[in-house]
Design a protein around this nucleic acid. Structure first.
Lengths: 257, 257
DNA sequence: CAAGACCTATTTATCCTACAATACGGATTA
DNA sequence: TAATCCGTATTGTAGGATAAATAGGTCTTG
């Protein structure tokens, strides 16, 4: 088992884990939800444990109990915990968490085991995206195809790496949408997270951008020409290329900034 | 004032929309969330429309505004709507909905376009499950394999169709878990929904059960023997069999294959 | 007349207090 | 010991009061 991976924060010599609710970013209840949610997904409250009662949170965060309750309702909706009278709020087992939720995924990306998380993301893309491209090749509409092509074009002409990543996300999301399977749309958060977490790798390997662009255009073309099998393979090639880039700096940090 | 009279169906402008909050099933706030959520996913409040204000809901449901707010927070957490002062709660575009959430999926299964929904479910399984089985064949642990085998055995010896379906779900969920990719676990809700919605078809074709059992055992064997490609194909065969059963004319044709 | 600044009304956001419902865990009793 | 009872801690629900935010109308001004 994990030895609960000693808290990374070195500056907490207090017994009480400094809550430090960061306000200003949105409403109070969402701040509360984020503050508690992050601590849950980071493993500070392992599944099965009951967290402090609402009054305690209210006192720690200096907010009303109503705000705390609304924040906890958000976490309940994401299946991070269940609340029952007298017993309190108990953290749910991990397999119940809505890991595909945008917020949880964002919180999770900051968790200690970030490497394993990125690996899961990439593995997930291998499952999802080739088949999505094949379906898109088969069922896309004119308008959907246009969105994909436009995103592909924007990638090539993006003036900055940030805008290129934005177009990249738009490209892959467009493919998902072009499958015309509504259940696939929520998986876009996976791609969004993956590409934004891979952004650092992309910037480090800017020389390969031309090659990556070529791979993207092959996907675009095969979808447009309605060749499912070819689209599938083209996506696999792109993913393999991403894998290679990720693995390229094998251990030594040749960091250039 | 109400110049924003949405061009909804003329038939349901029948005075009031009969809220009839069904109580007794859980807490009030979750009942509120379900009552409003169902009406959203069923299209009664199309994306972009703003729903009645909190005071209105409180009056309609005969509950406090606090309860309504907590219910709305749940729907916000599932990305069904966003709330802002002065403007109210606006329904989000469908592509933002967390369709893979267990609750939303349940509500959605009762929506008008149920046929298309089931089709999307089945298509999703074609994408997910073969690859999941291949990963499971590659990475499963001893304990995980035992769970899969046990579920497969329980399917064969289940005394009732209901218990057989339960073991069926457990079988497929076990495969997902055996991939050891935590991001795949949340997709179990898809399988759960699919199998429970297909339950009616399964009961109608009870003669084919031994054939289905054979297909399941082939999957179990190939995973156990760590043969990813064979497992992939075995799952595809099972899904194709399900497709055939679904498409079979719903008449009283109890033909044996 | 046009464009911008200002004002108002409506709605959510937050806070507060009080009470009800629940079930955990110890006390009581046979 | 075992079964039952009950006190109590905690969430659930209610209802009201005030603050903040903002869409839309009004007024001012060039």
């Amino acid at each position: 088992m994990d030895k609960s991976a000693a808290p990374v924060s070195t500056a907490l010599h207090r017994k009480k884990a400094t809550p430090k609710l960061k306000r200003g970013s949105g409403s109070v209840h969402s701040s509360v939800a984020e503050a508690i949610g992050v601590r849950i997904v980071r493993g500070e409250f392992p599944p099965g444990t009951v967290l402090p009662n609402e009054a305690k949170w209210a006192a720690d965060f200096k907010v009303s109990r109503s705000a705390v309750r609304e924040g906890i309702k958000i976490l309940m909706a994401k299946n991070l915990l269940v609340s029952r009278p007298k017993v309190g709020s108990r953290v749910e087992p991990r397999e119940r968490w809505s890991l595909l939720d945008h917020d949880i995924l964002t919180w999770y990306a900051t968790a200690p085991n970030r490497g394993k998380f990125l690996l899961s993301l990439q593995q997930f893309r291998y499952i999802l995206e080739p088949e999505a491209a094949a379906l898109a090749a088969e069922f896309h509409t004119e308008e959907q195809m246009h969105e994909i092509s436009a995103a592909c074009h924007d990638m090539a002409t993006a003036p900055s790496l940030h805008e290129r990543t934005e177009a990249d996300v738009r490209f892959h999301l467009g493919i998902l949408k072009a499958t015309n399977n509504e259940l696939l749309l929520p998986l876009g958060v996976i791609i969004d997270q993956a590409l934004n977490n891979l952004f650092i790798f992309i910037t480090l390997q800017a020389n390969d951008l031309h090659h990556a662009q070529d791979l993207h255009e092959k996907i675009e073309r095969n979808i447009r020409l309605r060749k499912p099998q070819a689209a599938r393979i083209a996506v696999r090639n792109l993913l393999a290329n991403s894998d290679e880039i990720i693995r390229r700096p094998p251990g030594k940090k040749t960091r250039k900034s």
